[in-house]
Design a protein around this nucleic acid. Structure first.
Lengths: 241, 241
DNA sequence: CGTCTTGTGTCTTATACAAGACCATGCGAG
DNA sequence: CTCGCATGGTCTTGTATAAGACACAAGACG
């Protein structure tokens, strides 16, 4: 009975604010109340509130600007690209990808998909097959698997243009799913005939195989993405700090 | 004249403490003065000092433990392994690598080495060729290039055992170089005959090619490392937050 | 078009108490 | 007497509060 919640107060406040964003009671791009006001409402000191806000900012859930206010982060395609897209050209500069969607299907999850997305056996997933084009050349062939339960009516608004630009923006705007974290496993593989046809490379060309699981702000896995990157003219960049 | 130093005070304090660690006036593993004492010496408030210490801790330059004190981080092999070694087995667990050194040479830097390590043309580098063995099987073939200017007498203490365990520990203990950051570029390549001989795989097997440049606490590049990972039984794991 | 006012986040200081770690003291069992 | 160990004192970092000076942005006003 001593400790109703053992976590530090600033962590509890962070969780409360996190919920408000995830639940949508604070909309994307909207300004949130000023610090003194919010601190008073929550019954904590300004310092404690600031500590919670700093953590939310580090997780890219809010943006703060001195003199202006604090805003719920918008999943702009620029921001999502910088945060999650690690492909660079040989000069080390980010590339600006175009997207071509080739197929969208829905069917029960494979064993692999169920495991990675923590789905029950038999649950359905949507699958999006697409290729990504850099400077006129197709360089990535990928398949995206989404739990159908999280993405109802995915097929309806699926104009290729919609999903092309940046799919995480679409997740957020159309389905309210805020992507904050991803785990990737990288390996090398040889191009199959299907890969070769998409990427325009010889069969057997070494490709960088990227298996990504993406998580939302509540920690649920919401996307499995398997990409095959042709590294003849591009690299996957990692910073370790 | 208005602003002798435009940076916030806590950043200036961070820089001062950073210098003390880099210059060696605070030794590795040693306890640093308690907060009130240090704050008084630097002429800042406890809060400001704490903010600087928090940043140093985030960069893994110090370790703080409630009740005990604050210590200059030791580059233990465990810590370095967790921080910089991203290879996992197929179950997702970290592997415990052994190391076999095959050659150590010194000669003028190649064009590539000079560019990545920011060396003048003609400057010398040491090169260490080694392989890394997981669970009895050689899985990585790599070459490490070090600016000779930063690593005098490298060849003398170069008992394979010394460099085997974790080379960053050796850098720190023998040369005072504190490694804090790395940039990696990943691509896929086919195993050459030399790779095949080391890794015991067929020529042409797709390998994960990892090009890493490592930086010290002063931001200088101190190591270029080119690794070829056999991904038949292992993966390279990345977390994006 | 500049200046002022107002509202916002940022920095710095100060104080108090909580919690973890360590150590010396001293009591009690053997 | 000696050993073992509980206990409390004291040092450490961690958490929470409060208050004021400052910097930046935007709109109102002259």
């Amino acid at each position: 009975m001593r400790r109703p919640d053992a976590r530090p107060l600033y962590v509890q406040v962070e969780a409360i604010l996190n919920d408000r964003i995830v639940s949508g009671s604070w909309k994307s791009g909207q300004a949130i109340p000023a610090e003194p006001e919010l601190a008073a409402e929550l019954g904590v000191s300004a310092g404690t509130l600031r500590r919670a806000l700093a953590r939310l900012e580090q997780r890219h859930l809010i943006e703060r600007r001195q003199g202006r206010g604090t805003y719920v982060a918008q999943q702009t395609s620029q921001q999502a690209l910088g945060q999650f897209f690690r492909v660079r050209n040989l000069a080390g500069r980010p590339v600006d990808p175009e997207t071509v969607i080739t197929a969208v299907t829905t069917s029960p999850a494979s064993e692999e998909e169920a495991r990675r997305l923590r789905l029950a056996p038999g649950e359905e997933v949507h699958r999006i097959d697409r290729s990504r084009v850099f400077e006129g050349e197709p360089r990535i062939a990928e398949r995206i698997s989404l739990p159908a339960a999280f993405f109802p009516n995915l097929t309806l608004p699926l104009a290729p243009k919609q999903l092309g630009t940046e799919i995480y923006v679409h997740y957020r705007n159309a389905h309210g799913i805020i992507v904050v974290q991803a785990e990737e496993n990288l390996s090398a593989t040889a191009a199959t005939e299907a890969d070769a046809a998409i990427l325009g490379c010889p069969v057997g060309t070494p490709l960088l195989l990227i298996e990504r699981v993406t998580f939302d702000a509540a920690g649920r896995p919401v996307e499995l993405r398997v990409s095959r990157l042709d590294t003849r003219a591009h690299r996957y960049a990692v910073e370790i700090a």
